[in-house]
Amino acid sequence: MAVAIVILLIALGSIAFHFWSPWWWTPIASNWQGMDDTILLTFWITGFVFVAICAFVAYCVWKYRYQKNRIAEYKPEDKKLETRLILITTLGVIALLAPGLLVWNNYISVPDNAYKVEVVAYQWGWKFRLPGKDGVLGKTDIKLINDENPFGLNLEDSYGKDDLLVDEGELHLLLDRPVKFELRAIDVLHNFYVPQFRGKMDMVPGMITYYWITPTRIGEFEILCAEYCGTGHYAMRGLVIVDKEKEYNKWEAKQITFDKMFAKNKNNKNLQLAKNTK
């Protein structure tokens, strides 16, 4: 008997926990309201099924508990009932899947006007590259990475010269401007994840992956790595700051172009060499 009550309590307790516990998603700061909505829809449908089935089990356990002279029903099959259940389930599944696929279609279709930002992940930190004045990110290759050229930019590609390099683990984004993150890893898998943006994608050495968002709220948001990448995985944090236009421009103006950085690094290296030979 206790089982029936406990099963019922588990169902009701789960609902109570869902509505009254303090733990819920962080307020959204991007355009992916659709993801939250699909989650809510899924919650309603699955929650209903969960409670209904738990209640049914509890009822059966109570109503049909063992009695010496009770005889269970003998009914191997009920085709009609089975067909009906299959149909209802199929409908439920379609109701979940259809909106999900629509949102996914948006997620993988980047708008043409999206501003491109490259995110580079390494063990264990974040770097960023903005396209600079020409609006185009220059080509890169992991093989070109060295002390003077930490991003591995192709020196022959003139698009790369004005790219802005951000090497301090902090990225600023302009409010309400769609942005496409081009994701690159130089050593192992990582995943660029900002809980408030909802989006996520692994970064894979040897290829460029992407996703896009539109930031819809100013504020500071923590970047987390969401794909296991070794001992420092849990500590691989960064910061995204969503700004209004004025603050954003101020920040962008302070960033250094690849040209300048390369020259500076070369210089440093020559100085170093000179010092060493002295």
Partner: peptide, 17 residues
């Protein structure tokens, strides 16, 4: 039932990992 969350690709994006 939580598998229906994760299997539905859109919902998986915020929840995976």
């Amino acid at each position: 039932l939580t598998g229906l969350f994760l299997g539905n690709v859109t919902v998986d994006v915020p929840l995976s990992d």
